[in-house]
């Protein structure tokens, strides 16, 4: 039996993490979610460095990436990921609070797979998270599983 891939979620705000995980729990996903809190940790996780040096050698199904984060921001992380050999095709979905046009354009030119602006209304927020989880963890076939 193949192992169910994990989901990597990068977000610095603990409130956002809690709300997003609450929304994900309504999807009944079989995938486990790993949470990291800044851009550097995303890279540590993906490239098995720092506290993730001994992590199981597997790639996440997709990366849910906040933009405004300490150290490296989401767009910078995306650039490094896309320039790397092993993660150039990793599905990445941006999840961000602000509708900055420059962020949207830059992310897409760097090859992001989706860009989602967090809705203020919690019911809408849950809907957005559920559709991300449903699509990227269940409907979509990730190249990382090949």
């Amino acid at each position: 039996m193949t192992k169910i891939p994990r989901i990597l979620y990068a977000e610095d705000s603990l409130n956002d993490v809690e709300l997003t995980l609450a929304a994900f729990s309504e999807c009944n996903l079989a995938n486990e979610i790993d949470v990291v809190h800044d851009g550097e940790e995303v890279l540590d996780y993906l490239f098995f460095r720092g506290r993730f040096a001994d992590r199981e050698k597997s790639a996440p199904a997709f990366l849910l990436l906040d933009i405004k984060m300490p150290k490296l921001d989401g767009v910078e992380v995306l650039k490094i990921i896309r320039e790397s050999g092993e993660y150039k095709s990793l599905p990445v979905v941006m999840l961000t609070a602000s509708k900055m046009e420059s962020d949207i354009l830059k992310s897409y030119s760097l090859g992001v797979n989706g860009f989602v602006i967090k809705p203020i209304d919690f019911t809408d927020f849950v809907k957005a998270i559920k559709s991300i989880g449903f699509f990227w963890a269940i409907v979509n076939t990730s190249p990382m599983s090949l």
Partner: peptide, 17 residues
């Protein structure tokens, strides 16, 4: 305007929960 949105989203979210 943008930075005020996050705490507001949190209030709304935790209130519903």
């Amino acid at each position: 305007s943008h930075d005020l949105r996050s705490p507001l989203r949190h209030i709304d979210g935790f209130l519903r929960l």
